[in-house]
C-alpha cells in the first residue's frame, strides 16, 4: 500500500472489534448527519421545508440512538448512548467524511443528503437480512423513513437541476464539489472481511447507487463526474476533516463542562 495520509491506522480487527466498528459506521453517520441537518432549523428557504428537514434530522438522531443504545449494551459498564455521543473525540468517530462537510447553501445540503440517503437506502434495505438480529431489527424499523429521505432529496435535486438557470448552475457545482467526498462511502474496509457477508460490505452497494444517481441526475439535467475520480478517505478509520472537531466541540460542550451532571 505504501506510506500516505492513512499511515498507521489500525487494520486488524477481531470479530468483536469488527462488530463494534461496523455499528459505529452506521451510528456515527446518522448522528453527524442529523446534527448537521438540525442547523437548518429556522433557516430553511420556506417554512414547509424547515419542517421537512427537521423531521429528517429527527429520524437520523433517532436511529443513532438505537445504534448507540445497542453499542452501550455490548460495551457494558458505565457506557451509555450519551457517553458514546458526548465523550468520544474525533479519532474515535467512524462517520464518512461526507456527512461532516459543511451545510453550505440549500443545494449543497441537498446533494450531501442525496448521496448519503441513496447509499443508506440500499444499505439498510440489505441489512434487513443481516444475520445479526439487532442490526436487522433497526434496519427494518428505519427503512421506511430512509426511503422517504432518499425520495425527498432526489426530488430536490431534480427541482434544483431542472429549475432555473441559477439553480442549475448552483446544484451542478454542489455535485462537483461534493463528489470527492462520496467515493469513500463505497470503500472497502478490513472489518468487512472479518464479519459475515450479511453485514453488507459497502463496496457491493456501488453499482446500484451509481445507477440511481445517474437516473436522478438525468431527470435533473445534471452531469455526473467520473466515477473513478480520486476520492478522499479516512473517516472509517477515525482520520477526519477539520470540520468534525468543531461539530463535536459544539455538540459536546455542555456534558463536558459539567461531567457529573445528568440531564
Amino acid at each position: 500500500m505504501g506510506g500516505g495520509w492513512l499511515n498507521g491506522v489500525k487494520r486488524d480487527f477481531t470479530k468483536e472489534e469488527a462488530l463494534e466498528e461496523y455499528l459505529f459506521f452506521l451510528a456515527d453517520d446518522a448522528l453527524i448527519l442529523g446534527q448537521q441537518l438540525s442547523k437548518w432549523c429556522s433557516a430553511g428557504p420556506v417554512l414547509e421545508q424547515d419542517i421537512a428537514i427537521i423531521n429528517t434530522a429527527l429520524d437520523h438522531i433517532g436511529r443513532a440512538r438505537l445504534l448507540y443504545q445497542h453499542l452501550a449494551e455490548i460495551k457494558g459498564g458505565a457506557t451509555t448512548e450519551d457517553s458514546l455521543a458526548y465523550f468520544r473525540d474525533h479519532m474515535d468517530f467512524r462517520n464518512a467524511l461526507l456527512v461532516e462537510q459543511p451545510n453550505g447553501h440549500w443545494g449543497d445540503s441537498i446533494v450531501r443528503s442525496f448521496f448519503i440517503d441513496t447509499f443508506n437506502f440500499y444499505l439498510y434495505d440489505a441489512l434487513r437480512n443481516c444475520t445479526y438480529a439487532p442490526i436487522a431489527e433497526i434496519a427494518e424499523k428505519s427503512i421506511k423513513e430512509i426511503a422517504y429521505h432518499a425520495q425527498w432529496s432526489a426530488e430536490w435535486v431534480v427541482r434544483l437541476g431542472d429549475g432555473t438557470e441559477e439553480s442549475h448552475g448552483k446544484v451542478q457545482k454542489s455535485i462537483d464539489d461534493l463528489w470527492m467526498w462520496a467515493g469513500e462511502l463505497f470503500e472497502s474496509a478490513p472489518v468487512f472481511e472479518v464479519l459475515d457477508p450479511s453485514f453488507v460490505a459497502f463496496p457491493t452497494l456501488k453499482s446500484a447507487w451509481l445507477n440511481k444517481v445517474d437516473e436522478v441526475l438525468q431527470m435533473a439535467t445534471l452531469a455526473r463526474p467520473e466515477d473513478d475520480a480520486w476520492a478522499q478517505t479516512g473517516g472509517r478509520y477515525g482520520i477526519h476533516s477539520a470540520h468534525l472537531g468543531y461539530i463535536l466541540a459544539e455538540m459536546q460542550s455542555l456534558p463536558r463542562t459539567y461531567p457529573d451532571a445528568t440531564w
Binding site: K39, I51, I54, G62, A85, L254, P255, A261
Partner: peptide, 19 residues
C-alpha cells in the same frame, strides 16, 4: 440550543418541539 442539547434524548425532544 438544538446543536448543543446535552443528551440525545433532550436533543430529540427539543427538535420535535421546534418542529
Amino acid at each position: 440550543w438544538i446543536t448543543r442539547a446535552p443528551s440525545l434524548r433532550a436533543k430529540l425532544i427539543l427538535l420535535a418541539k421546534v418542529q
